[in-house]
Amino acid sequence: MNLFREAFAWLFAPEQQVGADAVLVRLGEHLLYTAIAVVISAVIAIPIGYWIGHTGRGKQVAVACSGAARALPSLGLLTILTLLVGVGDAVLAATVVFVVLGVPAVLAGAYAGVESVDPDVVDAARAMGMTEWQILLRVEAPIGLGLLLGGLRSATLQIVATAVLAAYVGLGGLGIYIIRGIAIRAYEQMLGGALVIVVLALVLDGVFALATWLITRARRTPVRPGDLGGPGPAETAAGTAQDQTSRSPAAATEGSS
C-alpha cells in the first residue's frame, strides 16, 4: 500500500498542478478527445439507428457490424492508422478509431430504443393522423430515450478507455502518465495516472446513470400483477419504457382499429 501513498504524493505534488503536463491539462485533453468522438459517433449513428428501428430494415447488418467492431483490437487499429497517416496526424487516426468504437454502441441504443416501443402505440399514433416523422420524433424517440442514453453511455466509456491508449501514439491525454511511467519505470506516476483515469470513468458513468434515472423516474409504473417469476429481465430503461407502453388489450384494439 506504500505504492498508493507514493502515487497520491506524486498526484498532489506541485509539478502536477502547473504547466503543459499538469493533471488538469491532461484531463482536459482526454475529455476533449472523448467529447469530439462521442458527438461524431452520435451524429452518424442516431439517424441510422432511428431509421433501422423505425423501418425494421438493416438490423442484421447493424448487428453484424457491431460484432465485427467488438472483435477489432483498438490498439491495432490505432497503430495501423497512425502509421498510415503519419505520427503528425495521429489525432485524426485516433478520432477515427474512437468513432469506429463508439458508433456500434450508439447505433444499438438508438434502434433498440425505437424497437422497444409497443407497435400498438405506433399504430395508435398513425391512426391519429401523425406523419411518419411525427411518430419518430414525438413517440418513438422520447420512449426510446432511455435505451439511447444507455448506448451513449457505453460508447462514452469505451472511448474514454481507448483514449488512454492514445498516449502511445503521442497524443497526451491521461494515458501519458502510464505510458511514460513504464518507459522510465516510475510506478508512482503510472499508478497516479491510473487512479485519475478510473475516477474520470466512474464520474462519467455516474453522470449518465443520473441522466437515465432522471428521465425514467417520471415514467416508473407499478409492477404488473402477472410478474410473479422474479424480477424482469431488464429492469433498466427498457423495462420501464415497455411496461409503460404495454396497455390493456382493450386500449390496444382501440388504437389499431
Binding site: 474514454v160 510506478y187 478510473v198
Partner: peptide, 17 residues
C-alpha cells in the same frame, strides 16, 4: 457493472499493487 467501466490499461496498472 462499475468494474467494467475501469479502462483496461488503468486496471493493468492498479491490480498488481
Amino acid at each position: 457493472g462499475l468494474l467494467y467501466t475501469i479502462p483496461s490499461l488503468a486496471l493493468f496498472v492498479l491490480l498488481p499493487p
